[in-house]
Simulated scan of single mutants.
Amino acid sequence: MRRAERYRAEERRAVAETAQRLAVLLRAGIAPERAWHFIAEVDGGPAASIVARMGSGQRIADAVEQEGGPWRSIAGAWRIAAEVGAPLADSLRSIAGAARDAAEAADDVAIALAEPAMTARIMTWLPAAGLLLGAALGFDVVGVVLGTPVGAASVIAGAGMMLLGRWWSARLIRSASRRAETPGLRAEFTAIALSGGASASRASALVEDADPGGDPGTTARVLELSRVAGVPAAELLRAAAADERQGARTHGRIAAAQLGSRLLLPLGVCTLPAFFLLGVAPMILSVLATTPVVW
């Protein structure tokens, strides 16, 4: 797993842990500001930054939102719950579960991607290894490259193909690992708003202000089902959020499985020709340059 992906996974787990601890402290009767201070005193890190901003006069939701990334899920839930009077502890517990599911899904996808991604990185260095192998075997690779136009052109073209292959492979890997920050967050936010007694229209407006991403159509269909069936929408929405996270996990696994075959394209189009141009062609030219011509 790349460093940026490791950081995002750790950040999701930190958000889930913080939201869960806040829910427990709030349920125990501790005031929200004091709960944040206790967590910052023990954990430091983002919680300490949030408390510092709170000390400068910012509201809690605004201070949390400035952390960005998955911390925006806590900020959005906090803001909506405060607006409609929903139970804050229960709202944070829902967000903790959502963030934990998202972190586990991201870990599953990263594990599935690890092997094809590592294979791709190794294969893109194969042309350079061929060039070094030719020099190690005693072929006058350097003389051919520096002394003949054909050798120089071969190496330049091979280096270009190698870089193109690396760029192409990296793009395929990024595309396979791309996913929503926290799938199902829109449905979770809507459930929080409805649990505080807000109407469906007001809940939708509050969720839009929080900008959780995701497909509004999914939430709209759940609300319509709730209206037609005459049942509370909150549990339907949380079930839809869980389904969305499971769908994101399945999609990530499928993308990881398909990555292995897709990486064959840059391998065949770029890496193997680059291996010939960098590794094989200079050795052939070196042999030809040192072989006397017999008339």
Rank of each mutant, 00 (worst) to 15 (best):
S199V: 09
L194H: 08
L172P: 01
A159Q: 06
E181V: 13
R179G: 12
A153Q: 05
A187H: 12
S204C: 08
R202V: 12
T190Y: 08
V150T: 09
W167L: 09
V155Q: 09
G165R: 03
A153Y: 09
T148M: 02
G165A: 03
A205N: 08
E181P: 10
S154L: 14
V150W: 06
A193W: 06
R202F: 11
R178A: 14
G184H: 00
W168Q: 05
S195D: 05
T182Y: 10
R179F: 06
A210N: 06
T148R: 03
I173S: 11
A157K: 03
R166I: 07
I173V: 15
A198L: 03
G196D: 00
E181K: 08
S175P: 01
I192V: 10
S204H: 12
L164T: 11
I173Q: 14
L206E: 13
A191N: 05
W168R: 12
G196L: 01
V155Y: 07
S195C: 03
L206I: 11
R202S: 07
V150R: 02
P149E: 04
L163H: 02
S154P: 01
A152I: 09
V155C: 12
I156L: 12
S201L: 14
R171W: 11
A205D: 15
S199Q: 15
G196Q: 00
M162T: 12
R186A: 05
I173L: 13
D209A: 13
G158T: 08
L206R: 04
A191L: 06
S169H: 08
A191F: 08
A198V: 01
T148P: 01
G151E: 03
L194E: 07
L194W: 13
L164K: 05
G158I: 00
G160I: 14
A198Y: 02
T190C: 11
W167V: 04
R174D: 14
E208N: 13
A187R: 10
E181Y: 08
I156K: 04
S195W: 04
F189Q: 14
E208Q: 14
A191C: 10
V150Q: 07
L164E: 05
F189N: 11
R179N: 07
R178F: 08
G165W: 06
S199E: 15
A187N: 10
L163F: 12
L172N: 05
E188H: 07
W168H: 14
A180M: 11
G160A: 14
S204E: 11
R171V: 01
G196K: 01
R178K: 12
A187Y: 12
A203W: 15
R166G: 04
S199Y: 15
S175I: 02
A193P: 00
E181L: 10
G184Y: 00
V207G: 03
